[in-house]
Design a protein around this nucleic acid. Structure first.
Lengths: 230, 230
DNA sequence: AATAACTTGCACATCAATGTGCAAGTTATT
DNA sequence: AATAACTTGCACATTGATGTGCAAGTTATT
């Protein structure tokens, strides 16, 4: 049990670093949870635990309640999405929008769980709050694009932003259903985002092919900070 | 399921017709269930019952188990969707596709619950089977459109069909989030379906405005009269 | 090797939801 | 008014999941 109580019984006890295997197990739990919740948003701790190769009891050594585990997953998801989308800035809103799709694609699993949580469950309000900045970002892109005459004007920006988001999620769903390859999904999510944004399919393809920053390998991967000596 | 047939069977039980209020209550339960499950896919019978203005206990007078209630909802949903989409036939696949969106829109609530059930829960396989014909129909339309050079060819028909379905559902979600008016939703779902199918937003709008059968008041039953208005 | 950290299995308490039985009320229908 | 249909409240059994306490085992770390 991770003692969170701040009762300074004696001199401050130095919180030691967790054991290596324990740290690994913690990650294993998180990963298993993501994976299992992708299949069934109501997966039990039992299920998650055994998927992580641990006993249910052990989970409580890392997370004091189920909610805490989910919350952590959630924070992680939001953090990843935010990190992935934050640096996107481009003079062409269409490209930026495609980039949003592409970045989401590179985080499929986390994104899906987070998105599910944002829709269902009692936490949906809170999760929604966390995603607020991301949504604002997309909305700003849409506005920028409309302003520049690059995107459709027949749908209100706010609505359009949410629809693009929804369209992208559809691709992620489809990706889980049918096993879609990395590059295929990469292109697909961009195509769909652009289509929803108002481009014809030929325009979308043209734009993607003409923009080197949208190539499947132009993805600046999330920071593996610290070059580990190998 | 519900045997209303007056089979001349004098075994031991003459099956009488249900009392009028009972029949009404049954419908009330179904309606309440739809509504509540739209808010929370895991709504309890307690919640549903009180939303229907009844006690939880009374539900068991109409449905012997929760599953049976859900199954009935499901059948009803599939029936409605099927009925709404079955008569759609048109030489122009784009119009037909828009029509699919429009018809789904007219059944929003039922469609959403059914769609949810098709994704979550242990019944998803069964529900999916029920929707099979509908999906085949959409797929056929997509193929027809591709054949005729009216729809995009950069996405595999099977995938495209599912993406269109997903896009339409996004609109339905959006409709629940923000209160969208009947006509607004009607147009929106068509626009999004066509956009996903590959049209630019201007093409989509043009097509919709030029097709009287896509007008918000074009009624569900009278199938189609030869399109001559151009 | 010694220690503390971690895992595990079991027993147990709790909780929310489902489904039943039954007796007492209401209400539609004849 | 008489009857059967229906609703309701309460008690109760059941089930699945969560969360705890504890003792006994394992394993990383020193």
């Amino acid at each position: 049990m991770t003692d969170t109580s701040t009762s300074p019984r004696r001199a401050s006890r130095p919180p030691r670093a967790p054991r290596r295997d324990a740290a690994e197990n913690r990650v294993a739990i998180l990963d298993a949870a993501i994976s299992e919740l992708n299949h069934d948003p109501d997966a039990s701790l039992e299920t998650i635990a055994s998927a992580a190769g641990l006993s249910r009891r052990s989970i409580y050594g890392h997370f004091s309640t189920r909610d805490e585990l989910v919350a952590e997953l959630n924070d992680r998801g939001i953090a990843r999405v935010t990190a992935a989308l934050a640096p996107i800035r481009h003079s062409d809103a269409r490209i930026a929008l495609a980039l949003v799709g592409a970045r989401l694609w590179s985080e499929v699993e986390d994104v899906r769980v987070t998105a599910q949580l944002a829709i269902r469950g009692p936490r949906r309000e809170i999760v929604g709050k966390g995603l607020e900045p991301v949504r604002r970002g997309v909305l700003d892109l849409v506005r920028q694009g409309v302003e520049a005459g690059q995107l459709r004007t027949d749908i209100e920006p706010g609505t359009l932003a949410r629809l693009i988001e929804g369209a992208a999620l559809s691709v992620l769903d489809e990706a889980v259903r049918a096993d879609i390859s990395r590059d295929e999904g990469h292109r697909l999510v961009m195509l769909v985002a652009l289509s929803t944004a108002g481009l014809s399919w030929r325009e979308a393809a043209e734009l993607i092919d003409a923009s080197p920053e949208l190539a499947p390998d132009a993805q600046p991967h999330a920071s593996h900070h610290a070059g580990d000596t190998e």
